[in-house]
Design a protein around this nucleic acid. Sequence first.
DNA 1: GTATAATATCAAAATATATAAATATTTTCA
DNA 2: TGAAAATATTTATATATTTTGATATTATAC
Lengths: 116, 116
Amino acid sequence: MQQPIHRFTSEFFKALGHPARLVILGQLRGGERSVQELQQALEMDQSSVSQQLAVLRNKNIVDTRKEGTTVYYRVRDPMIFQLLDVAREIFNNHLIDTQTMLAQLGEEQSEATPHA
Amino acid sequence: MQQPIHRFTSEFFKALGHPARLVILGQLRGGERSVQELQQALEMDQSSVSQQLAVLRNKNIVDTRKEGTTVYYRVRDPMIFQLLDVAREIFNNHLIDTQTMLAQLGEEQSEATPHA
DNA sequence: GTATAATATCAAAATATATAAATATTTTCA
DNA sequence: TGAAAATATTTATATATTTTGATATTATAC
């Protein structure tokens, strides 16, 4: 429970646990992006984006490269994207579950009240 | 950014972002477990375990089955384990990175001061 | 019905994270 | 040098999560 792997992994998942940071990572799928580009994609103000980037940086999820006054961000380990893909699959499964559940619920109700 | 997938995914990752909950999921790899069994594995008090389980339950990550007064928990979508596996791989890569980095740092230092 | 075992919920305090606005740093260019 | 652009950091406040201890619920056995 105090194993480093669990400390690391929980910190890591925590860093992914914010919509804005997921959008950032989504953008970085297309390769490196400047802070400006991310700002535009996120429609967030400068400070907020920079702070979200700091979270990802502190957890070593992204790396940076500076060119003049522009800072480019990129994902450090492409396996991150694999992780996001799996999460998306789970999301899809979950949606299907919910739909199935709702559909079944619908059927049961119509059975209970065949032609109210 | 307000896309449901990102809201869902961030909530989901947040739920994974706690060491105790990762231990719980680790235990559930071996199939369903009672709260008692989890309590012992976690070495945490009853209330805390129950609350961590509630988090996983609220995010639909686990399902339960009741038998008498005993409640058994299981992971809802086995793909969760795949996710944890990818996270572990990232952890390993990261370790290697760190080690490599430290090793290089060591080399550089010895080069700078060949035989102090 | 009462006691007991297993689990869940509640409530309060401690801690962590998020948000927003202001300020600081770094780099370039005139 | 000093102004401007891009990014980062700081600070304060708001909000959320964690933790602990107490209490509540549910099912079983007596």
